[in-house]
């Protein structure tokens, strides 16, 4: 089969900008995101970039970006359109959707779209779940390639190198496939101004959960959010000798004496 004309769906999430350090609300109900800079999840940017590169290579010819969230996640959809995606879809959802919710929504969208390649980030940097792609693959009963650092599409199959504990693992799987992106897959480009202007005219549809016949899951309930134990800055030492003698007396580990190997 000709591998051209494939369809890709990229799921993107609006999250706190990765440079911002969050604060926990005084009532410990959640983190405080008021007046916080929000951006596209960095792993989703990598996913968008990869889809655009597949399009530039003539392998993919339609890229749909989907974001599930309140109206303002349209900002991130527009950014993805400016980077080269063709169409956007916002699924209106005012509460935080769980990974299984997002996977079920994407499964519904797939029924209409029939995409060949799903690209998701490996992890959202807010909830740090690392789950959605794997769940989507399970629901679609299709193969998954998580933490991808290299993707090759040929002959209706994907050859993906994954970052795993201990090194790299390369696997081959038939399309359709769900791939989640790791940091070293690519370096996302910046959108040029004319592209940002063009993106305003690209189609951006909105659907509700009711349109998709989705009821959100309730099995995980957030009880409270607290700050982690605070680490105090310690003391500054003046020399390597001072450092070694301090570690010998203070650290709870064996620091070898001169001449002996650990």
């Amino acid at each position: 089969m000709n591998t051209n004309h494939l369809k890709a769906i990229v799921a993107i999430k609006r999250v706190i900008d990765y440079n911002v350090k969050v604060r926990v609300k005084a009532d410990l109900s959640d983190v405080d995101l008021s007046n916080t800079k929000m951006s596209m999840n960095p792993f989703c940017e990598i996913a968008v970039e990869e889809a655009v590169r597949l399009k530039e290579a003539g392998i993919v010819d339609d890229i749909l970006v989907v974001s599930i969230g309140p109206k303002n996640c349209q900002e991130q959809i527009r950014s993805a359109l400016a980077l080269g995606a063709d169409r956007g879809l916002q699924v209106e959802c005012d509460v935080s959707a769980s990974p299984l919710d997002v996977a079920r929504i994407l499964q519904k969208i797939q029924q209409e779209e029939g995409a060949d390649i799903f690209l998701l980030g490996k992890q959202s940097i807010d909830t740090d779940n690392n789950q959605t792609g794997q769940m989507l693959a399970a629901l679609l009963d299709c193969p998954q390639a998580t933490c991808a650092s290299r993707i090759q599409i040929e002959q209706n199959k994907a050859i993906v190198t994954r970052e795993v504990d201990g090194g790299l693992l390369t696997v081959e799987m038939p399309l359709p496939v769900v791939i989640t992106t790791d940091l070293r897959l690519n370096e996302p480009r910046f959108a040029a101004l004319p592209k940002i202007m063009q993106a305003k005219r690209k189609p951006l549809a909105v659907k509700t959960l009711a349109d998709l016949d989705i009821k959100l899951t309730t099995d995980i309930e957030l009880i409270s959010v607290s700050s982690p134990a605070h680490r105090q800055a310690g003391i500054m030492l003046n020399s390597v000798d001072e450092l070694i003698s301090t570690l010998r007396s203070d650290a709870q580990v064996q620091i070898p004496k001169h001449g002996e190997e650990a």
Binding site: N129, T217, P228
Partner: peptide, 29 residues
Amino acid sequence: VNALSDVIEIISPNQYKRPIYAGNAIATV
């Protein structure tokens, strides 16, 4: 069902702590 990633504390057989936001907050779920 949903899963819980990176549990750092088991409070009871259905309550857990896990880090969110790169460990800058700890969620009890």
